[in-house]
């Protein structure tokens, strides 16, 4: 049982880190600021929640289960998803309004 849980923890933690890494590579290769804000949601929407879940499983294994910790995990996951998407909305709007250079291939642009 313990070995299975450790494997699940490993998959969640390393998988989550790989989502963050994919976001970073996409950020490195994409051509304008808006695209970089765009690809960030892969890291915050999947990467960090997976790592938090892996940490929770390991925590249950060493310290035992209790409801408060589960609640903290749910708050953390909901926080990562909701807060990061609201923040990205604000950041994307600000980036567009501040006249950040757009990829010239942006076509169609219905907000112009």
């Amino acid at each position: 049982m313990s070995a299975v849980l450790t494997v699940i923890t490993g998959v969640l933690c390393i998988g989550g880190a790989i989502f963050v890494l994919l976001s970073a590579i996409a950020m490195l290769r994409s051509r304008d600021g808006l695209s970089r804000i765009n690809v960030l949601s892969g890291a915050t929407g999947m990467g960090l929640p997976w790592i938090a879940t892996g940490v929770y499983i390991e925590h249950v294994q060493t310290h035992g289960f209790d409801v408060v910790t589960l609640l903290k995990l749910l708050v953390a996951i909901a926080g990562f998803v909701i807060m990061s998407s609201v923040a990205s909305n604000a950041l994307g709007r600000a980036a567009y309004r501040s006249g950040a250079p757009l990829d010239p291939a942006t076509e169609p642009n219905e907000l112009a």
Partner: peptide, 14 residues
Amino acid sequence: DDASVAAVSDLVYF
């Protein structure tokens, strides 16, 4: 450019 710096700062935070 400023938008990239903001996006990267988020990434580094996470």
